[in-house]
Write a protein that binds this DNA or RNA. Structure first.
Lengths: 211, 211
DNA sequence: AGATTATATGAGCAGATACTCGTCTTGTCA
DNA sequence: TGACAAGACGAGTATCTGCTCATATAATCT
């Protein structure tokens, strides 16, 4: 990984500035997209100067990198707690809740950077980093499915995991940009959708193999 | 709607240029995103000059407009054929196939402009246009669901329709950017996902109302 | 053919944007 | 307290990008 910062803040002042800058960047990128969120605007919203911004970040991409890094470690922490738990005794519905509830809660107060940076053609680095994280998550999910449904092949598990992750991520993103009333409903539907899909996958291999 | 073209091409030469420009624009936007696809680059790929580009299109947004317009009318034609047909006698699986197969075929040779322009922060006009088209489609789908499952409320139909549209669109987009082998599989899964979801919706209201 | 219209061209302009640098202020530590 | 480092600042620069315009060529019409 490239050097993330030009100069690590050593004083409290510097650290606070970096936090303000990241917060401002997150807001602006959410509002305008990565390209339109100019470094000058980010500095302005953080109530500081471009000079200060470039004292800590070597270039614009480093800001995106920092945001994505933070996002990924937060998400990893979120999932680590769930993946450690033993879900084998739970019903499918309970297991899905265990997996999605933390993410839903997280998305209540944080942005879906995956969606934002998955299409940030401006910096292939970021796109690839987000893609790698996605792949990592799908791998974990795939293992979970494999341990739960031993009759499924590895490849099927991977495909199912990918579908579930894509669909869940997308619907949560949609929920985030919807009005509050719809938002909750969409998340509920996301869960129902995944439960229905996985039940279907499960049945297909255990029950009749005709249709 | 705003004037789409600065000067309508009246000679065969002009019409061919416009087509080349639109093709180049579609390619570049797919590769780089709307923002990074510069008008100079579009003209260059179409093997013409910026002057010629601006002879037909008043500004960059007009190129996006033209692409989206064309995309929407093609999609509308695609769905019109399906919506006219009577799907009430078909099984859920057959009905879903009738709806999705044309879209899958279309996406085999065309880009998913919906995904691309849904996040084009550069021109709110385009975003809104795509959103309106999405809404139109969801309305149609909702009616279809309502006529098929009379026990569902209007609001439920709308929510289900929205979920189905979002999920189908997203997965088809993912399929488009995957390798050929995965691509087909994802589309199959998209269908299975929707079938599983709608079966689930259907059962929930007819069968037991406990879980 | 002559006139008029349609199309082609690309140097260059105005504005925006990522980023630098010299200067100033604040903190730290002997 | 003095000296050095960390941080703050913002005018300025190089570059890019959407777009214009003066000029040249090709098609069409009378």
């Amino acid at each position: 990984m490239m050097t993330k910062m030009r100069r690590l803040p050593s004083q409290e002042r510097g650290l606070a500035r970096v936090e303000l800058l990241l917060k401002a960047a997150e807001e602006l990128i959410a509002e305008l997209g990565y390209d339109r969120a100019t470094t000058n605007a980010i500095a302005a919203r953080a109530e500081t100067s471009i000079g200060s911004l470039y004292q800590f970040f070597p270039n614009k991409e480093a800001i995106g990198q920092a945001l994505v890094s933070r996002y990924m470690s937060q998400q990893r922490a979120l999932f680590a707690a769930v993946f450690e738990r033993d879900l084998s005794g739970l019903s499918l519905e309970q297991a899905v809740n265990q997996l999605l509830d933390p993410v839903v809660a997280y998305y209540g107060s944080h942005l879906d950077l995956t969606t934002i940076f998955a299409t940030a053609h401006s910096s292939p680095e970021l796109v690839q980093q987000v893609a790698a994280f996605n792949h990592e998550l799908i791998g974990r999910l795939s293992q979970l499915l494999a341990s739960r449904y031993s009759q499924l092949t590895t490849e099927d598990c991977q495909v199912y995991a990918m579908v579930v992750r894509e669909v869940a991520g997308h619907l949560l993103g949609v929920a985030q940009t919807s009005e509050a009333r719809l938002s909750g409903r969409i998340m509920t539907e996301a869960k129902r959708l995944i439960i229905a899909y996985l039940s279907h996958c499960e049945l297909e291999r255990t029950g009749d193999n005709r249709a």
